[in-house]
């Protein structure tokens, strides 16, 4: 391949990506690769554009500069129909679940099958129930999305993301705002799906403990740059003060507790 991508081992390759929103640079010339069959985590504080990165990979946003290859294809040069074909092989789990509020659980999961395949209704039923069973919500199929707890909604969304048997799943903050039990369930499911279905997983998260427990490889993003990468073991021994502050959750460090402001005393005295 002339694009420098080894598509046997790399599923996603991001090369010299730059993206800005208005005057703000979200990404400044970053490059990273996602290995096939592995769980790769992209970590960083809130507001570093981690979700934006997933949308760039999915071709929903266009970069200012740089290229993104998914399975050897340059996402942003694909025709619309080819992009849609590619997207059928990518699952994405949104933070909110993004379930369609006017359909019940069963119909939500059946939606991609009904839209993209010519399967018969009995066949669709079998597939939907299998996926629902896998996330433990077979009994909840007639509920509407607004009747679900956040954790359940995310599990339904997970079932929907795998219903077309994709090659990769992108998880957008899967652990945020979950109680310990649903957290444990999600961690277990992500790990199990990755291994059992031969998926490639990309997790975008700022939850250190859970992410580190299942990730094979971690990238750290801050201020539009990659400031650290490695396996969870390597990360622990990384010299970067920033990464250590992030991993330990210290209040002050290279990332200051205070938003940039003028001198405190002067400000109080209103000079």
């Amino acid at each position: 391949m002339d694009n420098g991508v080894n598509s046997n081992t790399e599923l996603v390759s991001i090369q010299n990506l730059s993206f800005s929103r208005g005057d703000r640079k979200i990404f400044n010339d970053i490059s990273l690769t996602i290995q096939r069959g592995k769980i790769t985590a992209i970590m960083g504080p809130s507001g570093t554009g981690k979700t934006t990165l997933l949308k760039l990979i999915g071709g929903q946003l266009y970069p200012d500069r740089g290229k993104i290859f998914v399975d050897g294809q340059n996402v942003h040069q694909l025709k619309r129909s080819d992009l849609y074909t590619l997207r059928k092989r990518m699952g994405m789990l949104f933070q909110s679940g993004a379930l369609l509020t006017d359909l019940n659980i069963y119909d939500n999961i059946a939606l991609p099958l009904r839209e993209h395949t010519a399967l018969s209704e009995p066949m669709i039923r079998t597939l939907v129930l299998m996926k629902l069973h896998a996330v433990g919500l077979r009994g909840a199929r007639t509920l509407m999305p607004n009747e679900l707890s956040g954790g359940m909604a995310r599990r339904v969304a997970l079932a929907r993301a795998i219903v077309l048997d994709p090659m990769m799943i992108m998880y957008d903050e899967p652990f945020t705002g979950q109680d310990p039990i649903s957290l444990g369930t999600l961690v277990k499911l992500i790990k199990a799906f990755n291994n059992a279905l031969g998926l490639t997983s990309i997790i975008v998260s700022h939850d250190v403990k859970e992410t580190a427990s299942i990730a094979d490889y971690i990238y750290f993003l801050s201020d539009g740059k990659i400031i650290g990468k490695g396996t969870p073991e390597q990360i622990k021994n990384l010299q970067s003060e920033w990464v250590q502050q992030f991993m330990k959750g210290d209040a002050d460090g290279p990332v200051h507790f205070h938003y940039p402001a003028s001198d405190y005393h002067k400000d109080l005295l209103n000079i």
Binding site: K55, G58, Q60, Y84, T85, R87, K88, M90, G91, M92, F94, A98, L99, L100, L111, P112, E115, H116, A157, R160, L164
Partner: peptide, 9 residues
């Protein structure tokens, strides 16, 4: 955008 990512317009 969830639908778009499921390749549903």
């Amino acid at each position: 955008s969830g639908m778009e990512m499921m390749a549903i317009d």
